[in-house]
Design a protein around this nucleic acid. Structure first.
Lengths: 212, 212
DNA sequence: AGTTTTCCATACGCTTGCGTATTGACAATC
DNA sequence: GATTGTCAATACGCAAGCGTATGGAAAACT
């Protein structure tokens, strides 16, 4: 019993911290409370240390956030490459992307909160880059299906808007989003609307665009 | 020349301020920098006074923000009623909504930044209410077209997600959004994709939903 | 004219959170 | 075993921003 408890938590698996630990804890905060909630002393407390430790690993708060965002982006890219871009058939590739987008990953939470704190230049920078990247490979998907460049561009913006919008909806509505149960149904619904050959785009445009 | 300059700015049209002035100035800040950027002394400076004035009109900072958000919501509802809900034909009504959504109104900027600062309970409250309202009248539009309740629900979420997503895209990409020029084209594109009779929903679902 | 009300300025206290300085403990190396 | 390097604790200074206290000026009332 007086065994010098060796497993209170996992804080003893490593005697000392490294930058990666700080970055991961930071991403956790960003995912749930946004960039502005990243406080050095708070995160230190989570890691079981004090500020003194932090300023040994990083020069300042901004340095930490930038490093964390880089880590986020790299890992996100890795997932996209492995699970989406590896699919050959463009229809299936798009479908895979929509499914991935609906999964409750921390990565999505982070993206959603970054959209919030984009007043900070270092946030808006990485945000812009990530968004451009994603729009590009979505556009490529649609071009692979047979869309013209401009049609594929517009369709990619549309599809990506759905992604971003859905992220916010789930966070905003939270409780009364009865929808939570059948996310699969919604994904099917979205896929049915947004994944189709280029020809069917012109359906019913007459009734919509007809000026009175 | 020593006419006691009567028109330096419009700060002399009224000798003293009222809560409405503070709320409008606050919404301006929220639209461009978010709720967390609302600082009493800063807004006071904009209005040409000091804190002393503020704490005469409001009890505290939160009081100001809540009042400003209420004003925003009321005015936004007014616009929706006048310009959208007044349209009888559901197709045209939806189209009008999409067009309105693409206009560069301050109201949209505010909504976008509120999505950011929803960690504050008073923000998330009004945000949730507004979103639910909007989803409801969108759903009603689709039901008027002939969608079933569940189909209309999903379609309204989809449409609203496009709106929210597009808001963020424009703010995120900012400069390199070459798309800015032909917003009209994009609105047509979106309308063509999202406004159609309920039957055409089932197009191509086979190729998309087919599990391997 | 005197009093009250309205609106605002100034000065202060208080909290939060960043960054620095200094010291200490433990491990690695010589 | 002494020295050096690594990581962390403590204490401090400092700025931003909220809220309060108090006083004052101008307008409105009586």
């Amino acid at each position: 019993m007086i065994k010098q408890n060796k497993a209170i938590n996992d804080a003893n698996k490593k005697k000392s911290l490294n930058p990666k630990d700080w970055e991961k804890a930071t991403l956790e905060v960003i995912a749930n409370q946004g960039v502005s909630a990243v406080a050095v002393e708070t995160i230190a407390k989570v890691l079981g240390v004090t500020k003194g430790s932090f300023y040994w690993h990083f020069t300042n708060r901004k340095d930490l956030i930038v490093a964390a965002l880089k880590r986020w982006r790299d890992e996100d890219n890795k997932v996209i490459r492995q699970r989406v871009l590896s699919v050959n058939d463009p229809y299936e590739r798009l479908k895979t992307w929509f499914i991935l987008s609906s999964e409750p990953l921390q990565s999505h939470l982070i993206y959603a909160t970054l959209l919030a704190d984009r007043q900070h230049s270092y946030v808006s920078k990485v945000l812009k880059e990530v968004t451009v990247d994603r729009l590009n490979y979505l556009q490529q998907c649609y071009q692979d299906i047979g869309y013209s460049e401009t049609q594929a561009r517009q369709q990619s913006i549309l599809a990506y808007s759905v992604y971003v919008g859905y992220l916010h909806m789930t966070k905003t509505l939270h409780g009364q989003f009865k929808h939570d149960n059948n996310v699969d149904d919604y994904v099917k619904h979205v896929a049915g609307q947004l994944i189709h050959p280029p020809e069917s785009v012109s359906i019913d445009l007459t009734s919509v665009n007809a000026k009175k």
